[in-house]
């Protein structure tokens, strides 16, 4: 499996990950090499094998909906890169 320059650009776009031209070139080679090593999985017969997402035998973990204290506004905003009027400040998302 060879990852082309365009494919790398496309994946980076899906991941909202900015890449330099140099990174794109490098990742195209490195990721192709890694994916080549994944080809080995084609040799495993997985017919009738159910996929395993999780190893613990727990399903649908519920708890009581109890009221408890949460964090103060100041605490939650303390790490905000930008804030205004006690809110997280973001760039405009509409034109």
């Amino acid at each position: 499996m060879k990852l082309s320059y365009e494919q790398v650009k496309h994946i980076a776009w899906l991941a909202r990950l900015g890449l330099s031209e140099e990174d794109v070139e490098k990742f195209s080679l490195q990721l192709s090499n890694i994916l080549e090593n994944f080809e080995i999985l084609k040799h495993v017969n997985t017919d009738n094998v159910a996929p395993l997402a999780h190893i613990i035998p727990l399903q649908n973990v519920f708890r009581e909906d109890n009221v408890a204290d949460s964090y103060s506004q100041a605490e939650i905003l303390s790490n905000a890169p930008k804030q205004a009027e006690k809110c997280f400040k973001v760039q405009a998302i509409l034109e």
């Binding site: 980076a12 899906l14 991941a15 909202r16 990950l17 890449l19 990174d23 990721l31 994916l35 405009a92």
Partner: peptide, 26 residues
């Protein structure tokens, strides 16, 4: 905002983290 997100992640993450995000996204 999209470019902002892309650039935040471009300069905030190192090479190995980017590589794994790329692999996983793919």
């Amino acid at each position: 905002v999209i470019e902002t997100t892309e650039r935040t992640r471009q300069f905030g993450f190192g090479a190995e983290v980017k590589r794994r995000i790329m692999l996983g996204t793919y």
